[in-house]
């Protein structure tokens, strides 16, 4: 049995000048290209006046389901129109990146590199969300947008939850709120990364131990985990966006 090699960080596969391109970046670019092709096809299917195709029905089903999910949380109004596109994009982008790691060849097609006396296998492809840099990027987008939405709905009143000198207790709560915002980034990033990376490790180990049949249920489970994680990230973002736009005492 060959030695199992698992790297917690994405491996560089080539350089563009000083810019290092890792296998997860390469895969995520391919996923982006795939999603652009999907978007173009979906646009043609939706805007065509011919009869409904199965693809068009699928696209409408995905968008409508996610929009309904959004309106279920924030109601039908300005918020739904503002958050809907982001939630749909988060969900589809994360879902496809999660599932990209399950495509045969991802993680197994690569090159052996010599590092001193050691031979290290560097795969060409790695799921985008199995790289902490991507999950941090997504978490940053979510948390920054939460602040933007909070400000655009509540103006300066929004920041009063962070900076409040009315009494020492409120000041301390404000500091905690600030810490919470940073913790959100960490929580978002590590939850997604941890789940997807753990899934990949699990599949690698299972495949290395028993290559046939046994890994199949784990593949099914990873499909489910990929879906759930995309949903969790999207829903949490939606809830944070909504909470930021509602002032104190407006929740009820």
């Amino acid at each position: 049995m060959s030695a199992i090699q698992i790297s917690i960080s994405a491996e560089p596969i080539f350089h563009l000048g000083q810019f290092v391109v890792t296998n997860s970046m390469f895969t995520s670019v391919l996923v982006t290209a795939l999603l652009i092709v999907f978007a173009v096809c979906a646009n043609r299917a939706v805007t065509s006046t011919s009869k409904n195709s199965r693809f068009r029905i699928l696209v409408e089903f995905i968008i409508e389901s996610l929009q309904n999910l959004t309106t279920g949380v924030v109601g039908t109004g300005k918020r739904a129109h503002l958050f809907g596109p982001l939630i749909v994009s988060f969900f589809i982008f994360i879902l496809v990146n999660n599932w990209a790691g399950l495509i045969p060849g991802v993680g197994s097609i690569g090159i052996w590199e010599h590092h001193g006396e050691e031979n290290i296998f560097v795969p060409y492809f790695r799921a985008g969300t199995a790289d902490l840099n991507m999950t941090i990027a997504l978490a940053l987008i979510s948390v920054v947008l939460t602040q933007v939405f909070g400000y655009s709905f509540q103006k300066l009143k929004y920041f009063s939850k962070f900076i409040n000198f009315s009494n020492p207790l409120n000041f301390f709560v404000g500091v905690l709120e600030l810490v919470l915002e940073v913790a959100k980034i960490v929580s978002f990033a590590f939850r997604l990364f941890g789940n997807i990376f753990a899934g990949e490790v699990l599949l690698t180990v299972m495949t290395a131990l028993v290559p046939l049949i046994i890994p199949m249920p784990f593949y099914g489970m990873e499909l489910f985990v990929g879906f759930i994680q995309a949903l969790v990230f999207s829903m949490l973002s939606l809830v944070f966006f909504n909470m930021a736009t509602i002032g104190h005492g407006e929740e009820h």
């Binding site: 173009v40 979906a42 939706v46 696209v59 929009q67 596109p85 982008f93």
Partner: peptide, 11 residues
Amino acid sequence: AIVFLVYKPVI
């Protein structure tokens, strides 16, 4: 891509 090509037309 998703917003301009998919989300808005579908909505």
